[in-house]
Amino acid sequence: MPFKHNAARRDKFAKVNYRVTNWAEYNKALRQRGDVTVWISEDAVRGWYAPRSGKRGGQRRYSDLAIETCLILRVVFGLPLRQTQGFVRSLLRLIDLAVPVPDFSTLCRRAQSLQATPCDRPTSGPMPLIVDSTGLRVHGGRGWMQEKHGLPKTRRTWRKLHIGLDPESGEIVASCLTTEHVGDPGALPYLLAEVVSPVRRFIGDGAYDGAPTAATIREALGPDVELIIPPPKNAVPGEGPSRNAHIDMIAAHGRIAWQKATGYGQRSRGEAQIGRYKAVIGPKLRDRRMETQTTETQIAVKALNRMTRLGRAVYERAA
């Protein structure tokens, strides 16, 4: 293989081992993530029905809270819409709560325009922001019918999920779903528009390198934000003093030393969060329309943040 041509002269890095120091608390949090104990407060019951709009014509029966509650259970337990309706109905029957449950067609229709309420995040100061993206498969068959019956194969497509992670809290503070034709720099303005907390450091891979992207980041996050973006191997000094400093440091001390000094290694947490999304939620989208797919990812991100707040593992480097 080409990447093994210089294997004899490459530096060998020993794998670092870590161990969890709060197994009791972390095990409790993992059990709570699968707990189906449900309670509904009186405020939620009063907010289950949609208020009257004051306009003529038919009125909505269910509030956004009711629709979002059903869709959260659907995403967490991986249920289709009809099974979600039956699951919520059985839960309400077990707790003796006499409120109606939205049917599957109502859930599908309301999901197109639903705006998921963001989770309240306490902030103690400016946070670092790690940005990354991944591909999600679109709902559909895997080609078995085409192979068996000789039908023409459909063109495969996917969606790109862009996330912004706060490594200190472990929560996804921003998310954006686009088509596969939109690159990472193109989706960045929409992603940064969802960041509410102040940001002191932006960490991204080489796809975000460039003067236009840096201008977009500083316009959205402020002129004082620190940009940790690796320049390419053939990069030359330009107009940005921060980027020039990175180029000079890499040329003088090497890329590994630059990663340690700048904290670029924290970007691996963004990749780990993407792996967690695909392991817990799934690698594909269940909805068929772009509007409902966007709602699906927003609700999935909110569910992951709630799981994170139950408890996180604390690691320390093993000797």
Score class of each variant (00 low, 15 high):
G263V: 06
L91G: 02
A207V: 03
R93M: 06
R109I: 06
T178Y: 02
Q293E: 09
A220W: 09
A272V: 11
V280S: 15
G265H: 07
R109T: 14
H149P: 13
H162G: 06
G143S: 09
I217K: 04
A174S: 05
N305E: 09
A187E: 00
G263N: 06
Q32N: 13
I95R: 10
Y190L: 09
P102R: 03
V38C: 11
Q83N: 09
H246F: 03
V301C: 09
I130W: 01
R309A: 06
S268Q: 11
R156S: 15
I274D: 00
N17F: 13
R60L: 12
I228P: 00
K153A: 12
I95L: 07
P2D: 06
A220D: 08
S133E: 00
L151N: 08
P118T: 07
T123P: 05
V236T: 14
R159S: 06
W158I: 01
L192I: 00
G238Y: 05
G54H: 00
T308M: 04
M307Y: 06
A318G: 12
T154E: 13
G57W: 09
W23L: 14
S53N: 04
I228N: 01
R60D: 11
I274F: 00
E168T: 13
A319G: 15
P230C: 02
P189A: 03
K148R: 14
M290T: 07
G78T: 11
